[in-house]
Design a protein around this nucleic acid. Structure first.
Lengths: 173, 173, 173, 173
DNA sequence: CATGAATGAGACTTCATTCAT
DNA sequence: TATGAATGAAGTCTCATTCAT
């Protein structure tokens, strides 16, 4: 807390006028940042009309946010809200709910694609998860240094895998 | 440390004869567990001949390990080796190297599939990553409670997405 | 201080215009209250003519004040002016001086009784103290819950013990 | 706590191996000291046979303990177990129970005197309280400096007032 | 080698007080 | 004069680590 106060240019006591304690400070910052992230992503998606372009915008917006907030994301990715010994269940629940809201948003895109005859007809929710997994996986690996190259350059790869898998054209299981 | 010592039936001082400190203890345990995990997975894969069956065995072995080691995995997934304020770069490097070894192992499977004409001909390493992302994503979501259902039941889903994507048969981008 | 200011309807800063600090505030309040108590007691005593009735009035006035100011008295009895880590010697001295003034006042009553041939002829000051001890003792025990019943009901007991002790009539030491 | 640790020649951490916290330390010390005081007083009383001598021994033992433990008593008398903002109710209850035990012990002496025809026949409990009040009153006043002279010199005064009151021999109310 | 009492730096938090507005 | 946001010293407690036995 002392370090944070100094970094923010406040006295310790002042910090406690804004936040009730360490956990409150942490929770507030994470929630605020996540909401901004989810909002930016939704805005980027809604700026597009075409379903495939929406999906591309989604991936790009994710990557953009991470690149613009590398510090926060690195920290968050490495702690997953669990750095505090006992992050309040309130935060855990809020994080999961915000995440599920995002999944639902992605599912909307997938459903749209299904209606348009672009995507396979079932499992829209599982597909939404799948896209999230791939996006978060590549983000994670880049942030921890297990994967080289810029995130935004990987947009095509993510979309390609998500849409077409790795099976060779025409090959049947 | 006191708690760990008691749990292990040692005196605190004795713990410090085996490990140089808390970090050393943590690193040793994580490394040991991870190596066991990777080994179990490789063993499961090597017990199969067919490429697609090898991949299925890989996914299943991952899920099995997680289900059999839920405590460790939940902890690890939530801390990503970063719970200690300053996890030694040594650990980070070891974790990443072990992970990269696993990626390489998966890449071997993909390359085999490519040679056999099953998979698309390029980007074997990226495809290896992709499988890792999907597997880890679903594990993560199940462990934190953002995804319902048993992991092993999801094997088919993971493989389907990895192999064929979500694009409708015959649809062209 | 913040709580006090709010309770008083002032801003914190305003409190510091009236009092130099927490101790000054505390001292002022205690002194003011004690002076009122002593004044009420003297008034009650002076309203009587007869010596024994004056003493009865003294005891009753003490008890009445305590019952009417239970909050303050409970607090004061439990802290004895020592709650502040370093109550200024000024306060201690003022408290003791006010107390000694009260003892002197009671001594006046005792002396009056001696002159009237009611009380034993010497030790008027010690007897004054004794009455104070008995009164304060019962007040203390009632306030902390070690003695049951209403204070005013104990007036007779206090006076009886003070005047006649517990020795059986006619018994000689 | 730092000051206490230093005074005791321990490190702060060591203090926390003996006591769970500040309150535990405080409670333990007070209880321990009080029990010793009560024990010393009972021992002194039981060493006598004669009722009046028992009472004299009681008063003297009180005074002796206070003189031998002036530091503790001064502190305790000024805080009455209330120095800690929220002394656990457990302590308050223990203190009151120990005190009531002492009152009961004194009541035993008074009852003995009543049976022997020395004391007035009723109110044994109230008389026990009265003796306690007088003893504690004089102790208090001496400790805070409102009464001069050595405590042990006051034994006769206390007993005289307790037994015979201040009413002149032969005078009737 | 094993032990575990002792250590003390450092973390979080409170709250009486100040001072620019 | 009144305000109240800002201050930071001081307090309590934790826990990884050491070292004499």
């Amino acid at each position: 807390m002392a370090e944070i106060a100094q970094g923010a240019g406040f006295a310790i006591g002042t910090l406690y006028q804004f936040f009730h304690g360490k956990e409150d400070l942490y929770v507030s910052m994470v929630i605020e940042k996540l909401q901004r992230m989810y909002q930016e992503i939704r805005d980027a998606v809604q700026a597009r009309e075409d379903t495939l372009q929406k999906i591309e915008a989604l991936v790009k917006a994710y990557f953009l946010f991470v690149e613009n907030n590398a510090g926060f994301c690195t920290f968050f990715v490495r702690s997953d809200g669990a750095t505090l010994p006992d992050v309040s269940n309130a935060l855990k629940e809020q994080l999961i709910n915000a995440y599920l809201g995002q999944i639902q948003f992605i599912e909307g895109l997938v459903s749209k694609g299904i209606k348009e005859g672009i995507f396979k007809a079932d499992k829209s929710r599982d597909y939404a998860y799948a896209l999230s997994w791939i996006i978060r996986g590549i983000i994670y690996d880049c942030l921890v240094g297990a994967h080289q190259g810029s995130l935004t350059d990987k947009t095509g790869l993510v979309i390609d895998i998500f849409l077409r898998g790795i099976l060779k054209e025409g090959y049947r299981l």
